[in-house]
Design a protein around this nucleic acid. Sequence first.
DNA 1: CAGTGGTCTAGACCACTGC
DNA 2: CAGTGGTCTAGACCACTGT
Lengths: 262, 262
Amino acid sequence: MAPVPSGVLGAVDPTSDRAVFRQIADQLREAIDRGRFKEGSKLPSEAELVEHFGVSRMTVRNSIGVLQSEGLISAEHGKGVFVRPRPPVRRLASDRFARRHRDQGKSAFIVEADAAGSRPEVDSLEVKEEKPSRDISARLGSPRKVLARRRRYLLDGRPVEFAVSYLPLDLARGTRIAEPNPGPGGIYARLEEAGHRLDHFDEEVRARMPSPGEAKMLRLASGVPVIHLVRTAYDTEGRAVEVCDTVMAADAYVLAYQLPAT
Amino acid sequence: MAPVPSGVLGAVDPTSDRAVFRQIADQLREAIDRGRFKEGSKLPSEAELVEHFGVSRMTVRNSIGVLQSEGLISAEHGKGVFVRPRPPVRRLASDRFARRHRDQGKSAFIVEADAAGSRPEVDSLEVKEEKPSRDISARLGSPRKVLARRRRYLLDGRPVEFAVSYLPLDLARGTRIAEPNPGPGGIYARLEEAGHRLDHFDEEVRARMPSPGEAKMLRLASGVPVIHLVRTAYDTEGRAVEVCDTVMAADAYVLAYQLPAT
DNA sequence: CAGTGGTCTAGACCACTGC
DNA sequence: CAGTGGTCTAGACCACTGT
């Protein structure tokens, strides 16, 4: 068994008020922050840390758990514990739904990812009619049924976002919006062609830890929150024509907005 | 020792592929979701769960740890484990910096909290000159020194937000901006009085788990992420006149934005 | 196969809370 | 004081990874 690299980790003080596993977590955190363990690199194994600090294995595992829930490291069964690499971040600008971005044959996600040098994918496509939840119903003006469009977005094979669009059925039924591929410019282009000229979007942004289902769907490491974004699109008559409910891996996104100083 | 309320929790299957502690976590999560354990109420104690499921204490603690990191429950030493109450949420609207909100004697935070029936406080006030970090410097057009205004916001005694404003020193020195209380309308009103008419704000929104320091400052339970917001204010000449770096308890906020459909 | 992390046990002592 | 969660030990067996 390889020893812990010398000079990187010190000793713990069992008589300290600070719990031993916290002291170990502190030392590992500081070593990571100082770059002693680089992004993506492997930490000493549990057995090595047990040996180095002279504590039991559960104590070491406890300290690893602390850093995992801080999002700093992630454990891989049979391989080791690694410093979490920071993935490339997708920047969502506040003009991302501007009409001028809607004239391509491909979706904004594909175009943008290509430009950034990433490999984009969209899967889990599902389009169906549903009875809306109370919340969605309220946002859309209480339609009896809605069309739901579900899809998952991936970058370089990694799922980063899961989105569901809801539209009142009378706007969507029988149009390309009800088909898996709504055509160039996406559903917003189809809505405008049908005479629903878009006026503005409202977005609500929250952050929280993922549910187990979301963690699975986005393959999230522990310690990675999600951004929950709910966007409502309004036409020029003030009618809500679409609600998009999106859950994003928080480490893959930064949202950018511009606010008026009016 | 009181038994676990009958019918709420079942048994575990030790031969299942699913780890026992995950099965216990699943059962507790479902009971919470179904309202069997209400918001703020106490879960069965570890000893009771050990008795009920016939497993060792570490297994029970492990399952509790799962729900803690999901943000569903929080443990209080000597008291018990409780279903996390959802705190009142502060809604930040995209027009919150509009000039019409700037004519009161009190800060926007105080006015808004009063209106919502909460008891607002601001503490940890610190105003001093500093050498800016590389990031802040770049956003402000590379000033040699900046004025930093630090403060923490609390609602009903709970810290919800920690914010630092940075301004180029030449704009701030010798004005009320450099005083702890910048006067009615806040620093934006002072900037405009000095001829720096504000044009717009850029905001960048990220979410992540808190650092240990942030968790302490905001008294965050485990399983609560933070929203990290960086706002830059620009005057009508395109100059960045302020950067505000804010860390917010994610369970206390929802950010609302309006986007143009242009 | 050896090395890794994942799960689980059965105990021990401690610190905090509320009565 | 009894009851609670917090920390720690010293083992055991398992599942996954790479050679």
